[in-house]
Amino acid sequence: MRKASVLLAGILILLLFTFCAKKPVVKEETKPPVSQEEKTTPAENPQEGTQQVTQEDLQPVYFDFDKYDLRSGDREILNLNAVVLKDNPTVKIRIEGNCDERGTVEYNLALGERRASAARDYLINLGIDSDRISIISYGKEKPKYSGHNEESWSKNRRDDFIIVSQ
């Protein structure tokens, strides 16, 4: 037991150091999943039918660890993505499902595909033609953020909505 507590103390000190050392390095590269800005973008689009849809008009959705069900905030994002797609009926997209680095290659491939399917099914339910949506899973093979911490992981558990044709 004494040995354990000495070890514990050692680990705590080490952890303190790693925490202090790691935190400042983390860079914020994306906006948080739901922001005020995003809510206004699609609303501007309807009047301007000739304007091309940009990648920024289609926001990603994020998932909990080992989960593929859509959180309520993500449904709002998907509703907005659906509006963009309805207003631009020629646009075709590919939903790319991604996972964080934890877990095996194969399981994550399957999980990533479930995440992509969940979003596709939701969009189809909102009336988007299934022919306009393809899906692919990148599992944990194409991480956008390379950190080995929850900061990166939470952003890697993600569906991207990639415009494949206008």
């Binding site: 040995k3 354990a4 070890l7 514990l8 680990i11 952890l15």
Partner: peptide, 12 residues
């Protein structure tokens, strides 16, 4: 930091 501790205890 549960997992680090758990791993150590297991080794013990």
């Amino acid at each position: 930091q549960m997992e680090n501790l758990l791993a150590q205890t297991e080794i013990e």
